[in-house]
Each structure stands twice: as structure tokens, then as C-alpha cells.
Design a protein around this nucleic acid. Structure first.
Lengths: 228, 228, 228, 228
DNA sequence: GATGAATGAGTTTTCATTCAT
DNA sequence: GATGAATGAAAACTCATTCAT
């Protein structure tokens, strides 16, 4: 009964394909539930039973798709980082001028942090819980994301737009950390600023520190004229 | 030999004094051991038995000086923050010019972060583990420390040294977060910079963003001419 | 084979029913083991691990069916008291004359005490260990049981069979305590009497004290002519 | 310096005597404190540290006079029983008629139970906690006390005052248990009776069951005419 | 003789993981 | 493949007992 299909599939991958689809579906189910729980409690406060209940499946099923509780954490991390990898290029796409692209990128970065600020804080909280191996994967992805911003700065530098002696990578990291700061100090910042205002305020700091005075006004005009 | 002293001590509180000294000694012992362990693992991965072994005492003794495991975490936090409260004013003392004082303060801040960079990272990791009450104490101390830097910026603003429209508190938080960044991204930054160089590079970013062009050169001269 | 049944079960609650049956079976298992252990040691001397071993299950399983060690004690109490509530009415059922019914009831009471004399002694020992709430439940059941005997006495009193001025409730309590005495002083009484003899001896005491001389002989004839 | 005295003591027992006095004083201190604590909590809920605090001495001192926590419990039991052994004969002394002496004895028994009803309940609660050896001592003392009442009944029986076939020992035990009942069901009885009334009510029960009708009125007159 | 800080075995309870159904 | 009952190692914490002062 099983193993029908095959009509003209040269290498019958039906069962394997079904398996792959199911696996990815189950994993998404689990990761989604885990993310929801991890935003309010720590990884150790989330029991696998709680997780099963939240996901609407059984513990047994979780272990069919995860070999250990720690795996779930890694998938949550990768899922969060994946969002940056998807949404940043999307926001920066098609913008010629590197500084304008940087502005668009940073604004998008802040918006993602804001959309899931608990998730961003989670990353700082639980990264030590990851396995050696998992941590490396996460760090690699983070470097990749940072590089999206660094590339703009490097390009601008190549065009002679930046002040002599600025450290491209350091600036990129500064931007990333200042974006995360929105999540880390959310309790303080969110009642004084709006995300958009916050993003532009921080962009103003970095651009003033990096862009030559000659071209600076051109970019400052792009940033909201708001306070700060 | 016993029962000597008393020479002219108005209210001989020997036993109580001895007890106080022992308590503070034991607590330091425990906190030191806990800090050592927490630098390599999370709070949940550190069992009270491990801690006792590390401290070279028994579990029972730990509970004679702490009423719950969570207390230990709070003491570790307070111990770390205490260092800022002690060393920052020390470093900034006697400096007239507010921006120069800010420079001294930030450099000191980075140095403390560097001395105990695992401890600084720990603070981000475990703050959610603190009790409601403990978290409040810790936040209050952190605000107090940030305010030491904010005060300089505010004073400089009062002297008309800053660019119109800068947000004093945001800049102070930026400095604090950029100092913590040294700990958070230590794996990346420490192989490219020296702390001193790092501190000055970040100071250059913030000063350029905040100080009027007219007086900026005066302060930039104080920052190492190094790379960046 | 699976998914058969359903023949005409309106709301097939199979899983829930299975769960209920298992829960009650496990609880009985645990209570039985606990009762066995509590007969030889106190509640505090019985560790949950001991209990698990005695019950032939794991500690984890115990906590799946009990939310705290104290719950076990309450269930043991309720289990013991339940036996009185079941067996007393059974023994008294269908007997018209209230004094004859009282005799049957007391004899049954003593027999239950004898069957599980360690359990009866246990009740005196551990009632203070119960929670406020548990104690109330237990007391309510005990009052209910005592009332079964009190009702006979009250009825007899209504028929003018009792000596003027007897306190119905006190007599009922006397009977209960004298029955418990068989358990409490078992080490002494059991080597001098047989339960049946003991029960009749105590009945003779109470009846002589309560029943009018006129009708007393009628009832004394029902009591074993044995010694005493 | 030590070892003075001796003035004319043939066998210098000074130091030993001092030691004996101190030991007995310390033990009384400890037992008194333990009794106070045990009336409100169970033996396991009373920690040796609590006890030391209550007694106003140190844990070390307790272990200088007790070799284990369990010893304390035995001493508390013996102290309670000692009171019966002292006060019962005192109350019964000089009364010629055995039944009158029994009345006096039972009333005294109830009064002692009432004075320390928590202590009496304690005896039922904690007797299983005693060592094999301790339990034997306690039982022996209890038998001795019961015998004080039994002796009266036996004497009365010898004088032909009792109904044929009464079991002397059983009646004595009934009296003891009915006296204890005042402590065991104190929550119920104390709000319906006064101790004196209670004692006489129970005496009336036992005397009616044991004393020949001919002489009964004489004794009933001695019992309060109150209700019951 | 008195003290009380120190000890560590033992307690209750939780929870990641397994495996028979 | 899915389930969830069962497991038992490990955790936080207590407290009777010891012993240096």
C-alpha cells in the first residue's frame, strides 16, 4: 500500500521526502513553543513536559526530533539568527549608496530586535548553556550578520567617505551592540524612546563618529529630526 | 591570657565583633568561590555541593551564612558592582574638566570590565535568576554607576561644550554598554585590541558624536593616537 | 484491533477512564506499602525512598500520584477510616433493637481495630503530622463513625431504656476509646483476652452503666458468659 | 586548690557530689525546655538547636548531659510519669475505704492529665520514637501507676463489694484510658465538661459497672450530682 | 565545664530521558 | 510515528552530632 507514487520519479524519494517535511514541521512546532516559553522564563525553568504541553504534543515526540533538551536551545538560537539573515538583506537590497544602505540595515536590525526583544535578551542569557559546538555555529552566524553591516562601512570607506583611521569592524560591532542594547535595557529605553527614534539617535552617533564632515549633513537629513 | 583586653573598652562586644568578622570572612570565601565557578558555568550548573568543594568548606557551612542558593548570586552581583562604585570615583577624583573626567572614568570602567570580564558577562547572563528584590538592588547600583558618567556629560553640556540636542542619558548608557561589550565580545575583541586602545577608540566615537568640533581636537589629543 | 469497541458507548472516554483506574490502583499500591511501613515506624522514620522500595516502584512514580509526602499520610488515614464507614453499617444493618444494634456495632468496631490494630495505634501517633486541612477531614470522618454508635444510644434513650441522666455522646466516645484501647494497649490486653471476649467485657461495663436494671439482664444474656 | 573541704568527710565525695547535683540541674533544665517545646510540636519538629535556645544553654552542653536526642524524649516521659507516681499516692493517702480511695485516685489522675494535657497526648504520639529500652522503662512505670488504682479495686473485691466476675485489671485500665481520653479528645470534651464533672461522670460509669447495687448509692452520693 | 561553628549524611522533590504500548 | 507513565540520578537544604577553643 505504501510505496505507490513513483510514477516517473527516477529515484523514488517519496518516503524520505515525507520524512524530511515532517521533521521540519515538528521542529518548527517545537521551536515556536520553546521560543514562547523562553521569553518569560529561563531555559532551566522550562521543563520538557511544559514544552510538550505548550507545543501540543507529547514528550516522546519531542525526543523523536531532538536528541537532547539542549538541542532545542540551539534551534531557537538558529531560528532567531535566521531572521536577521533573512530580513536584513531584504531591507538593504537595491540601495546603491553604502551609508544609506547601512542606515536601512541598522533600522531593520533595531526593528527585528524590537519585534522580539525577549528573544534578543535570551541570546545573551542562555548562550553559555549551548554546547561548545552549538556556540560556534551561533557565533559564526552572528559574524555573518555583522558582516552585512560591516560591508557597507567598508564600501563607504573605499569611497573615501569616512574619516581617516576609523576601524570598520569595530563600528559594525558597535552598531550591533547598540541595537541589542534596545533589548537589554528595554525596561529603561522603551519608556523614553520609540524604536525608530532610538535607531536614528544611535545612527547619528555612529555616523558623526565615522563620516567626514563634508558629507555628514546629507545623511543626517535622512535621520528623523527628532530629539537627541 | 583569656579575659585580658577590656583595657578601657566601654562596651566590650568581643563575641559579637568576632562573629561579624567571621561572617564577613566566610561570605567573602563563598562569594569568591562562586565567582570562580560562575565564570565557567551558569548558576544552575553550579551545585551547592560543587561550591562547597571549591570554597573548601562544607555545604552546611554555606547555609550557615546564606539562607538560600539565590543569596549567593546576589552577593556575587553586589560584589562586582561594589568594585565599580569604589574604583570609578577613585579614578575620576580631582579632575576639573568634565570631559577629561569622563575620559578617566570610561577608561577605568573598561579596565574593571577587563580585570573581571567573565564577571561582567555573568551579570548579563544571570540577572534574570535574581529575585525581584535582588534585581532591584542590582539595578539601583547600576543606575548609580551610570550616573557617575552621566554627571560629567551633563556638566559639559552645561558649559556649552556639547553639540545641541544630544541626549545625555543615552550617551551615558552607550558608554556603559560599549564598555560591557569588551566583556560580551571578548572572544573577538581581545585578539584585535588592547583594552586601553579599545577604550580610547570607543571614547573617540562618543566624543566625536557629542563634543562640538571647536573643542574636540583638544580632547582627541588625550586619546591614544593608535590605530582606529 | 485498535479502535474497535465503541459499540454504542455514547461518549468514549477510554483514555480518561484508563487513567482513572491506573491512578486509583497506584494510590492503593502506595497507601498499602505506606501502611505496612507505618505500622513499624513513624512517619518521619519512613523515607519516601523506603516507601518506593516497599511499594516496588520508583520515587518518581510516587510523586506522579501524590503531590507531597504528607498526602500519603492523609490517604492512609482516610483508607483506615473508610473501613469503619463501610463495615460498621454492614454489621448493624437490619437490627431493630437499638441496644442490640449497639452491641453488634461495638463488636464490629473492635474487630476492625483488631484486624488492623497497628493502623489504629498509628492514628493516635500521627494525627498531629496531618495538615490543618487533612486533620479536619479525618476528624469529620471520626465524628461520623462515632455518631453511628451514638445514634443507637440516643434511640434507646428515647425508648426509656436508659438510666436517667446518662450523657449519650460521652457514652459513645467511651465506647470508641475503649475499642481503640484494644490497639493502644494491645501488648498487654492481647495476652489476656480474645477480642470477642474483650468487646463483650467492655460492653458489659457500658451497658451496666447505662441501661436500666429492669432490661439489663436481657442484654447481658447476649454477651458471652465468659470471664469478667 | 580544688579538693579542699574534706573537713571530716570519711570518703571525700565533694567533687562527685557537685557533679551529681549539676547533672541533675542541667537535666531538669533540658527536660523542662523540651516539654515546653514538645507540647506544641512533634519530636522531629523540635531541633536540638531550638531546644538549646529554649533552655538558654548551648547545644554542646546538651550533649554533655545527654548522649543522643532520643534520650531527651525518654527523660520527658519519665518526668511526666514521675508526676503520677508522686501525686497519686499523695491524693489517696489516708483514705480507708478502697472505693473512696479509688475515687480520690481517679480524680487526681484526671487533674494531672488536665494540668498537662499536652504532655499526656504527647505520650501517645511519641512513644514509638523511644528506644526499645526506653519503651520498656516507660511501660513499667505506667503499669506501676495503673497498679495504684488496681490495688483499690482488688481490695474492694476482697471485701465483697464488687459484682461477681469483674476483671480487676481491665477496670483499672479502663479508668486509666478514660482519664487519658480527657487529653486525647480534649478539643471535644473540654468545651462540654469541666474536668471535675468529667472525672465524676466516668467514675459513675465504672462504679455502676463494678459495685454491687447494695452499696452503690453510698458512693454515688460522693460523686457530683451534676449532669450525666 | 561550656560554647557554637563546622560537618556531611540523609531528606524531599524535580525533571530529562526512555521505552512498552 | 506518537504517546505518556515510569525511572532514578541529582538538586537544594536540614539538622544531629562533634570538637577546637
Amino acid at each position: 500500500m505504501a510505496k505507490q507514487a513513483d510514477l516517473n520519479d527516477p529515484q523514488d524519494d517519496g518516503p524520505a521526502a515525507i520524512k524530511a517535511v515532517r521533521t521540519s514541521w515538528r521542529r518548527r512546532q517545537i521551536v515556536a513553543a520553546a521560543t514562547r516559553l523562553l521569553e518569560t522564563r529561563g531555559f532551566h525553568e522550562m521543563s520538557v513536559n511544559d514544552l510538550a504541553t505548550e507545543a501540543g504534543i507529547s514528550v516522546g515526540t519531542i525526543y523523536q526530533y531532538m536528541s537532547a533538551k539542549e538541542d532545542i536551545l540551539l534551534l531557537v538560537f538558529l531560528d532567531i539568527l535566521e531572521e536577521y539573515r533573512r530580513r536584513l538583506p531584504e531591507a538593504m537590497e537595491g540601495i546603491e549608496d553604502p551609508i544609506e544602505r547601512l542606515i536601512a540595515g541598522f533600522r531593520a536590525y533595531c526593528r527585528i530586535v524590537d519585534d522580539r526583544h525577549s528573544a534578543a535578551a535570551l541570546a545573551y542569557r542562555e548562550s553559555k548553556t549551548l554546547s561548545e559546538d552549538g556556540l560556534e555555529q551561533v557565533m559564526a552566524l552572528e559574524v555573518e550578520t555583522t558582516e552585512l553591516l560591516a560591508a557597507c562601512i567598508r564600501e563607504a570607506d573605499g569611497q573615501g567617505v569616512l574619516i581617516d583611521g576609523v576601524d570598520v569592524t569595530l563600528l559594525a560591532y558597535d552598531l550591533v551592540v547598540l541595537a541589542h542594547m534596545w533589548a537589554l535595557k528595554h525596561w529603561y529605553l522603551a519608556e523614553r524612546f520609540d524604536v525608530e527614534v532610538y535607531a536614528d539617535a544611535q545612527l547619528r552617533v555612529i555616523l558623526r563618529a565615522a563620516v567626514r564632515g563634508r558629507v555628514l549633513p546629507r545623511y543626517e537629513k535622512l535621520l528623523g529630526a527628532s530629539r537627541v
